[in-house]
């Protein structure tokens, strides 16, 4: 998988940016929560592109945000 660079991102439309980020986020999210990975990734993609890049670079931050997403999901399903 080719590395995700800023120049690659800025050359893409906002929509394409999210797609690129999602493809990279998804396998990482799957490690954290395989069952909810599709939904968690969907929630994380609602954040700004710059924030998603931070998540991709920091496993700790990604885990924190994924856990928050799970909490949101659980609240939503009540």
């Amino acid at each position: 998988q080719e590395p995700l660079t800023i120049s690659l991102l800025v050359s893409a439309s906002p929509h394409e940016q999210k797609q690129m980020l999602g493809v990279r986020l998804f396998p990482l999210v799957q490690i954290i929560d395989k069952k909810l990975a599709e939904k968690i990734t969907g929630i994380l993609l609602e954040f700004d592109t710059s924030e998603i890049i931070y998540m991709l670079e920091s496993p700790e931050l990604l885990r924190t945000m994924a856990n928050k997403a799970v909490t949101l999901l659980q609240g939503h399903q009540v």
Partner: peptide, 22 residues
């Protein structure tokens, strides 16, 4: 109650639709 379609699910290989207002 009112069930809005949230969250959007991301599936690898499927073009991301996301929220309408992105």
């Amino acid at each position: 109650g009112s069930s809005i379609n949230w969250p959007p699910e991301f599936h690898p290989g499927v073009p991301w639709k996301g929220l309408q207002n992105i």
